[in-house]
């Protein structure tokens, strides 16, 4: 019972945060409401007994990535005049709802064919560091190494793009 209540509470919060993201005009307000979405998603992961993912969602997503985005937004010092005027915004939004709605209903129907499952919280042996680590370093070792190369490439690329340019004579 408590679980169901918590699910509806956090689900509603995450949807409200996402709505705030796509409706607020200033990116700073959008980013703050997106943080709400990320934190309530972390709580939903905890409800699904994904303990490691819960911690990493909070630390990496709500912590690192969002503070990077907020830092850049503040760094660029965006005022009212810098914002693009979005005249066709409501028009595109309505068109998007008309186009996306049927796809959403289709996906929902497809998920309905899955067997109904319990979501009671599993204690030991699921979702902890040990279990995820065992799978990550045996079955998923090659993707793990590829992701590390990807992070290195992204690091070098970001430095090359945003770093100071020497003027070639």
């Amino acid at each position: 019972m408590t679980e169901t209540l918590l699910f509806y509470g956090f689900g509603l919060l995450s949807i409200l945060g996402a709505l705030g993201l796509i409706l607020f005009k200033h990116p700073m307000n959008g980013a703050m409401s997106f943080v709400i979405t990320l934190i309530s998603l972390a709580c939903l992961y905890a409800l699904l007994s994904a303990k490691l993912i819960f911690a990493i969602q909070l630390i990496v997503y709500a912590g690192a990535i969002m503070s990077l985005i907020l830092f850049i937004i503040m760094f660029l010092n965006i005022g009212e005049s810098d914002l693009p005027e979005e005249r066709g915004r409501w028009f595109y939004l309505a068109g998007g709802i008309v186009a996306i709605g049927p796809i959403a209903i289709l996906m929902q129907r497809a998920f309905k064919t899955l067997p109904p499952g319990e979501t009671a919280i599993v204690g030991d042996g699921f979702g902890g560091v040990q279990e995820v680590g065992m799978v990550l370093f045996t079955d998923w070792l090659l993707p793990f190494e590829i992701v590390s190369i990807l992070l290195l490439v992204a690091l070098v690329g970001a430095v090359v793009l945003a770093g100071k340019r020497e003027v070639s004579e």
Binding site: E3, T4, F7, G11, S14, I15, A18, L19, L21, I22, P27, G30, A31, T37, L44, L48, I69, I72, I73, L83, P84, E86, R89, W90, Y92, L93, G95, G96, I97, I100, G101, I103, A104, M107, Q108, F111, K112, L114, P116, G117, E118, T119
Partner: peptide, 29 residues
Amino acid sequence: MIHNYLTLSVILFCLGILGVISRRNVFIV
């Protein structure tokens, strides 16, 4: 309950698509 979680996932994904379609601010996209 599993279905509710998946429905929430679909809703959030569609809201993301709507954000990409309807906004022109780089950060929001």
